[in-house]
Computed example of a mutant assay.
Amino acid sequence: MLARTLTAAIAAALVAASAAQAQDTTYKVALDGTFAPHAMPKLGGGIEGFNVDLANMIGERLGAKMDIVATQFSGILPGLQAGTYDFVVAPTTITEERAANVLFSEGYLNTDFQFVVRNDTPEITDMDGFAGQVIAVNKGSVYDSWARDLAAETGWTVESYGTNTDAVQAVVSGRAFANVAGNTVSAWAAKQNPNVKLSYLFSTGKVWGMPFRKGDEELRATVENVIECMKIDGTIAELHEKWFGTAPAEGSAAVTPVAGYGEPDFEGYVDDGHEPSC
C-alpha cells in the first residue's frame, strides 16, 4: 500500500513539474503591429488582431507564455535569423525564395487579392467587370504594382493613395469604382465601412505560414500540431469570422490541415507520415 502511495506521489510530482516547466517556457515572437486586422494598436495600449489572438491561443495550448513583439515587417525575418525571435507570427507569404532561408509551418490562411466596391454596385464575377474603371490602391503595395501591370490588358486606370483606408474612401466618394487589396484587409474594410462590400476575389494560390529558423524542426512540429488542431476544432474559423466578418471558404487553408510538416511543394516540407489530429 505504501509503495503504491509513493508511486502515485512521485507521478503527481512529475506531472506538476512538467506543468511548471511548461509555464516557465516563453516564446518570443514577432509581428507587424500596424497591419490591420492582423495586428493593430488598441485603445488603452497594446495590440490586437487576428494574429495576436492566434499567437496567444497557441501559447495557451502549449502551456507557454508568448512575448509578442510588434515591429516593422522588414526587420522580422532578419531578426528571426539572428535569434532575436523564436518564430514569427506575422502573416508571411510562403515563397520559394523565403522557404530557402527559413522553415515554414503549413499555411493557415490564403492570401488572395480582393476588390471592394460600393454597396449599390451590381455583382461582378470576373475581371472583365472592372474594364475601363478606376481602381484605387495603396501606393507602393504589391496590389499597386499588380494592378498597373494589368492596366493595358484590363483597360482600367489605377490611382494610388497613401493608405488603403484612403483608397477605400475614394470608392465611397465615387472617385474610384473599386479598391483592390489583400482579401483579409478588404474583408476588414467592408466590415468597418457599411458603404462598401466585398466583390471579386482573385486567387493567387498562395498562403501565409509561420516562419522558424532552419534546424528548428522540433519547434515547428510542436506549433504546427497546435495549428492543425485549431483548424480541426474550428478555432481558426471562429477567429476568421471575428476579425474578417466572413466564414473561411471550404477547402481553404484556414480549415484544411495538411499531412506531414510544412507546406507541400516548398523546401522544408517533411512527409514523415504525420497525420493531423486533435
Rank of each mutant, 00 (worst) to 15 (best):
L201N: 11
A259R: 12
I76T: 06
W156S: 05
T121V: 13
F35H: 10
G209Q: 02
A13P: 09
V180P: 02
N101R: 15
M66L: 08
S74V: 11
L198F: 11
Q169G: 10
V102Y: 12
P264V: 06
T26P: 04
K197N: 03
F113P: 00
N56V: 07
I68Y: 07
F113M: 03
T256N: 10
S252P: 07
N179C: 08
I236G: 02
Q133S: 13
I94L: 10
T92W: 10
T125F: 03
T246L: 13
A259N: 11
G83L: 07
N183Q: 01
L6I: 14
N183K: 01
D166W: 02
I94N: 06
S203C: 00
V172P: 02
Y161F: 15
W188S: 09
G260P: 01
L219T: 09
K214P: 01
P91K: 11
T204S: 15
T125C: 01
A90D: 13
G49M: 05
A259M: 08
N179S: 05
V223S: 06
Q23M: 09
D149F: 07
I76P: 05
V134Y: 14
V185T: 12
D112Y: 04
L6Q: 05
A12Y: 14
S18E: 12
V69A: 01
R4A: 15
A147S: 12
Y200G: 00
K28Y: 05
D265I: 01
F113L: 10
W146A: 15
E123C: 00
G45E: 06
D120T: 03
V102A: 06
E48P: 12
V88A: 05
V137G: 01
Q192D: 15
S277A: 15
T92H: 07
D53G: 13
Y269H: 14
Y27V: 00
W243A: 02
G44H: 14
V226W: 10
T157Q: 01
T125V: 12
V158T: 14
A8E: 08
T95L: 08
Q114L: 04
G262C: 06
T93D: 03
D216T: 11
A190C: 12
S18L: 13
G162N: 12
N179W: 09
L109N: 14
G205D: 03
V171K: 08
P41R: 04
V117T: 15
E97F: 07
T256F: 10
Y108N: 04
C229A: 14
E106S: 15
N110W: 08
Y143N: 02
V52T: 14
N225I: 04
A170K: 06
T256W: 08
V196Q: 04
S105L: 14
A17S: 12
K42R: 12
A8F: 11
E238Y: 00
I76S: 02
G59W: 08
V89T: 07
G45H: 04
I227S: 01
V226Y: 09
S199T: 05
F73Y: 15
Y143L: 03
K28I: 06
F244N: 14
S145K: 15
K28Q: 03
P41C: 03
G140Q: 13
M210N: 07
G45C: 14
W208K: 08
I236T: 11
A19Q: 14
Y85I: 10
G182I: 07
G268N: 03
A30I: 04
L103P: 01
V137D: 02
P257N: 09
T5R: 15
L62I: 10
V69Y: 07
I236W: 01
V89A: 13
V258W: 13
